[in-house]
Structures are given as C-alpha cells and as structure tokens.
Amino acid sequence: MDIVIDSLTYTYPGQAAPALKDVSLEIGAGELCCLIGANGAGKSTLCCAIAGFVPHFYKGEMYGSVVVGGVDTVQRSIGDLARRVGIVFQNPFDQITGATLTVFAEVAFGLENLGTPRDETRRRIEDVLRKVGLWELRDRSPLELSGGQQQRLAIASVLAMDPPIIVLDEATSQLDPAGTRDIWRIIARLHAAGKTLLVAEHKMEYVARHASKVVLLQGGKVIACGSPREVLGRDDLARCGVRRPPFMEIMRGLTQRGLWQGPMPLTLEDAAAVLKEVARR
C-alpha cells in the first residue's frame, strides 16, 4: 500500500470542530483515487495531510497516522516528504515561485534546491516539460502563461522531483474546459505510467471515466470508498453534495424501469452504445 491512513482526526488551530473525523483509507500503488464531496467535506485537508502540510505547516491537533510510501508523515519534514509526494493546488498563479524568469527555470527550482547535478536537471526538465506539453514555451515567463498553462507548469515542477505519489487538490477547478481536458489527459498518462494519484475533483464526468477508486467525503468523514460504479451509483450522492453525471442519471432510470440490467456505463461513449442497444430492443 502506498498510502495508509489510520483513524485520522484533525482539527485546524482555533477551530472547534475537526476537519477530518476518524478517516481510515488505503490507497494502493498505481491507483488513481478520486476524492469527491461538497466544499468543506475535507478533501483539501486530506490532500494536505498526505503531503505532510497537515500537521507540519498548519499545526493544529492531529490524532491517528498517515503513512506514505512506508514513512510516517509526522516523523518527516515537508521537504523530505516532497521526494515522496508531489502536490498541485487549486490556484495556478499562487504556485508559481515568482522568482524565476522562464518556464525552464521554474521547473528547475525544486531540483536546484535539492542539489541535483546539472545534466540530470536538464534531462528531467526536458522530459517533464514535454510530458505536459510546455517544452515549446520553455523560454516564456511563467507569469505570461494562461491559467491552464500555469497549472500544467505546476504539475511539471512537481513531476520533475519524480515523486511516486502525486496529489492534485482541485487542480482543474479554476480552469476552462480546454484547460481541464489538458490536465486530465496528463493525469491519465501518469496513471498509465504507474504513478499513484490522489485527485480531489468536482467534475464527475472525468471521475467516472478515469478513477480506479473513488472516496466520497462528507463533513470530514469517509462516507464511501470503492469503484466509481459503486460510489457514483449511490442513492445518497446528491445529499452528499455531488452531482451524478447526467448520463448516469438516465442510465439509472433505465435500470430502475427494468430496461437495462447490465453494468452501469462510465463514459459517454459506452452510455451511447447501451442506449442504442436499448432503443433497438
């Protein structure tokens, strides 16, 4: 198991109610695990706990344990954990260091801090910039990029440090559809390459299509954890502040009326195929 969370309860300093309540979770290596739930359900806090910002940066009160790649996060510094877990945040602009003049130098920042040899750094920068499709823009100023490009740059900067686990905390929420599509294309590619991914996301169409595991949170608690079919098929989904993709809603209607008994399709293409089949009958 790559990430093992055991009865984690965490309260931010100055807050009365805990942000996470008795959360236990196991995420295997190479899994693409999506965190879903309304704002305030605890998705971001959970992301921060895996990267070690909870409790190292935010302080506060923490019970239980988070073990990442065999290492207890409480016992390691954030910098040390950075080699195991990379994290990408919601707001693209805020993640730019602001101290570099080019996209290339921005990606170099982390590797330079770790004292990586120059040839190795150059090789890795080219590799990750090509992966996120920014190699052509390497001499541009990071501040001149669009939001979607900045977010891809943030992913590249994290990838360059080559952590086995990558956490994306609502990384697409500020982006337009094209930007979102680009990020998910990268996520899918990383998943195929064997990275362990934890992705907090509101856009359910992508969750249904790509996740290998879905965790539904509400009020700091894990409500459900399982395959996308199981979790997105739950009756209480809307009550937990999550909208089922409209095509799945239609498929559920067909199932309830006894018109379709097979497995719930997870992509629009599959749904179209099923519906055509049903219509023919």
């Binding site: 940066f57 910098g79 945040f89 994290v158």
Partner: peptide
Amino acid sequence: TRSLAIEARGFSS
C-alpha cells in the same frame, strides 16, 4: 499557497 508550493519543492533543504 506559495510558501507551501516552494516548501514542497525543497526550499528548506
């Protein structure tokens, strides 16, 4: 956010 992001990139190393 920025200080989190640069910490995650080994700034304090």
